[in-house]
Design a protein around this nucleic acid. Structure first.
Lengths: 230, 230
DNA sequence: CAAGCTTATGACAAAACTGTGACAGCCGAT
DNA sequence: ATCGGCTGTCACAGTTTTGTCATAAGCTTG
C-alpha cells in the first residue's frame, strides 16, 4: 500500500500539511513547487501517483496533466487534482483531461488517504508479460497465443488485447468507455457500441472451447470477466 | 445546512459555549458528557457530525473514535476532534484514527462553524468502492455483484444503486425525496411513489435469500435498512 | 369500527440496453 | 489489381428496466 507520491503544490503551507499526512500514511513523498520541476521529476522517477494542484504559477494544472498524458512513459501515472472548492467546470475539465480523481480543498486527511487508496487500488493489476490463466483459458502475451483447455483459439489483434486486459483485471466491471481507454487507447474516436461488437466477436471466438460465457454482461454498467462459472 | 450535531465534552463551561454557538448556527445539538453516553447516542440518533473532545474521563477520545469507525452504522459519521492547544502527538493520532478534522482549543466560534461547514459539505460524496456486508448480504461495487449468504442476487441497475446506497447508510431513515436525490440524482423528474416500487422490486429480488425484510418501512417517514433482524 | 392516510402490489407501455447480422473501408499479402 | 482478414458503424430485433397508475391492504385516530 505504500507508494511513491509526487506532490505538485506551490503553497508551502498546504505542501507541508499534505506531506505530513502522506508520510503518516507510510508513503514516500516528493515535492515540486512548479510545473517545470514536476515534469522533470515525473519523467525521472516515475512516481506511483501525482497529486496535482490546480492553480500553479506558470503552467496551469490542466496543461501539466495534458503534458503527462501525451508522453508515452508518463501516460499511465495516476493523477489526483487538487481544486479550489466547488468549481464544477474545473472538475469536468480536470477529469476530461485525464485526471483520475479530484479533491476539492479544503479536504480532510481521511478523504485524501481514501482517494489515494482508491486510485492506487484501481490501478493495481498492471498488464504484464506474464501468462494468464482463468477457468482453463490461458493467454500468453509473449507468444501471443490463446488456448482454451489445450485447443488453440484464433483471435484478431483487438480481440486479443481486449481479452488480455480483461483477464488481467477479472471480477471487475468496466464500462464501454473504460474499455475503450484501456484497450483501444485514450485518444481514439470510436463509438462506444463498438465495444459490444468486439465483445461479441470475442465470445464467438471462444465458443469452440466452451468459454463463451467467460465474459458477463452487466446491464447498465458494462462487461466483466468472471472467474466463477455462471 | 442545518444539521444534527453531537457534542461530546465533559467540561460544562465549554459544553455550554459550544452548544450556544451551534444553536446560533441553526444546528440541532445534543450533548454527551461521557464516552459511554456518546456511543449510545450516536448509535441511537446517528447525528450528522460528532464534535469529540480529546480528553474525556474514562475512555479517551481516540478510543471512542476507533469504536465509531469499527461499527458499520457509525462508520460514516464525520468526526471533528477538539484538542488542547498544540499537542502535535494528539493531532497525529487523531487523524490516523479517522477524525475528519481537528480544532485546537481555544477556538473562535467562527473557526468552529467554518470547520463544521467544510466537513458537512464534503460529507455527501462518500460512495466508496469498498465491499459492504450486512446480515450476510454482501455487495461489491467493483465486481457489481450481490450475494445473499453465498447465493447470487439479480438486480437491475437502479435496484443496485439503491441497495448500495442503503447499505452504506444503514440504520438511517431516508425519505423518498432523499432517496431520489441520492440514488436517482438531484435533477431528475420522477414521482416519489416510484421509490416505493423500486423498494418492492428490491425486496422481491432479495426474497430468494431470505433478506426480504432487510429494508424496513418507516411509516410517514421513509425507508431504512436495518442491521438488526426485526 | 369507519374514515382518512400511507404503503404494497400487479399490470402496463414507453424507454433504454444489448445482441446480431450485414456492410464498406482499410491494408497487407498475393 | 485482387483477395481476405480486421475494424468501426449501422439498423433492427429481442429483452430488460423503468416510471406510473389504479387498486387492494394496512395503520392510526377518533
Amino acid at each position: 500500500m505504500a507508494a511513491t507520491i509526487l506532490l505538485v503544490e506551490d503553497e508551502p503551507g498546504i505542501q507541508e500539511l499534505v506531506k505530513f499526512n502522506l508520510a503518516q500514511g507510510g508513503h514516500a513523498v516528493m515535492c515540486a513547487d512548479s510545473a517545470e520541476q514536476a515534469v522533470g521529476m515525473v519523467r525521472d522517477t516515475l512516481p506511483d501517483l501525482v497529486l496535482l494542484d490546480w492553480m500553479l504559477p506558470g503552467m496551469s494544472g490542466i496543461e501539466l496533466a495534458k503534458k503527462f498524458r501525451a508522453d508515452t512513459r508518463m501516460k499511465h501515472v495516476p493523477i489526483i487534482m487538487l481544486t479550489a472548492r466547488g468549481d464544477e467546470r474545473d472538475k469536468v475539465l480536470g477529469l476530461e483531461t485525464g485526471a483520475d480523481d479530484y479533491i476539492t480543498k479544503p479536504f480532510s486527511p481521511r478523504e485524501l488517504s481514501a482517494r489515494i487508496k482508491a486510485v492506487l487500488r484501481r490501478r493495481a493489476p498492471q498488464m504484464t508479460e506474464d501468462k494468464v490463466e482463468i477457468r482453463g483459458l490461458s493467454l500468453d502475451p509473449v507468444s501471443h497465443r490463446v488456448t482454451g483447455d489445450g485447443t488453440p483459439v484464433e483471435l484478431g489483434p483487438t480481440e486479443f488485447r481486449l481479452l488480455h486486459f480483461m483477464m488481467t483485471h477479472p471480477e471487475r466491471v468496466y464500462s464501454r468507455a473504460q474499455l475503450l481507454d484501456h484497450v483501444w487507447g485514450d485518444h481514439v474516436f470510436v463509438e462506444e457500441r463498438t465495444v459490444d461488437v468486439h465483445i461479441r466477436r470475442l465470445r464467438l471466438a471462444l465458443e469452440p472451447t466452451r468459454h463463451e460465457n467467460l465474459i458477463d454482461t452487466v446491464r447498465g454498467a458494462g462487461y466483466r470477466l468472471s472467474t466463477q462459472p455462471a
